[in-house]
């Protein structure tokens, strides 16, 4: 298994190698028009783990995340070189349906974005367009339970999702993502609009979900990465402000003893 440059021969590589990566970025460079935003990122995301992507603003964290479910396809002038493998399959290969990818690789955004529909319909939305043939009631309940929201909303499934609190709306969005049975959940700053209590609830949920799903989270909050993730990738812009992978490792190692001094300076708040 190839890891970040300079870290291949670390002992911890053995731990990482035990689980096959669910997503692998291989020499990934990304451009918006002529502007390059990511340079040669090679990184494996382990299955059934929470991996945090951290780094200063503008280092390409969200861009990297959006590559994993082809969300960048929607951005004009997006262009990339290198490869992204999802469970061994080239995500950008010929014949790959980006809509299908987005069912398998779900996404939760910064601000909770429930549809202006009922709680039930929000969760049932994806499966319905997918032509789900099982029992929708059961699927909705199961998804809401997995998102730790069921007990709070079971008596008002027909009420508008917009009446929920921010933290509940975010968990609803997670339930909505879970309803289409993804394998990976991408989270882009999922707690930035939430209060501390709701934030802890989402972090707790990520831990639980990682038993069945692989989670990749972009966060500005170093403490959140420390609390909630198993692995951490640190990205930073170089002199030309093109994002590069500086260090990848177990979160425990990154937070106690990072190898690269730039990682250390960033996570201890000396810059960024």
């Amino acid at each position: 298994m190839r890891m970040a440059a300079g870290t291949e021969d670390r002992e911890r590589g053995a731990d990482l190698a035990e689980a096959a990566p669910i997503i692998r970025a291989n020499g990934l460079s990304v451009y918006y028009g002529t502007k390059q935003v990511l340079s040669d990122v090679t990184l494996d995301f382990p299955s059934n783990k929470v991996t945090a992507i951290i780094g200063p603003s503008g280092c390409g964290k969200s861009t990297l995340l959006r590559c994993f479910n082809r969300m960048n396809d929607l951005i004009p002038n997006f262009n990339m070189t290198g490869q992204i493998l999802f469970d061994g399959v080239d995500l950008y290969g010929p014949g790959v349906d980006s809509t299908e990818i987005r069912y398998q690789v779900g996404m939760v955004f910064q601000r909770p974005n429930p549809f202006p529909k009922s709680i039930f319909d929000n969760v049932a939305f994806g499966p319905k367009i997918n032509g789900y043939e099982g029992k929708l009631d059961e699927l909705v309940e199961q998804s809401l339970r997995r998102a730790a929201l069921w007990e709070e909303v079971k008596d008002r499934l027909k009420s508008s999702a917009l009446a929920l609190s921010g933290g509940q709306q975010q968990r609803l969005c997670i339930a909505r993502a879970l309803a289409v049975h993804p394998r990976v959940i991408l989270m882009d700053e999922p707690c930035s609009a939430l209060d501390p209590f709701a934030t802890l609830a989402i972090e707790e949920l990520m831990r639980e979900l990682s038993e069945d799903y692989s989670i990749i989270i972009v966060t500005h909050n170093m403490q959140q990465a420390a609390r909630a993730s198993d692995y951490t990738a640190f990205l930073m812009g170089n002199e030309e402000r093109i994002g590069e992978l500086i260090e990848f490792g177990e979160t425990r190692q990154i937070t106690t003893n990072p190898e690269d001094e730039r990682t250390e300076a960033y996570i201890t708040g000396r810059f960024g």
Partner: peptide, 9 residues
Amino acid sequence: QQPIAIDLR
């Protein structure tokens, strides 16, 4: 201060 890395050590 929620110290980590060198600060925590």
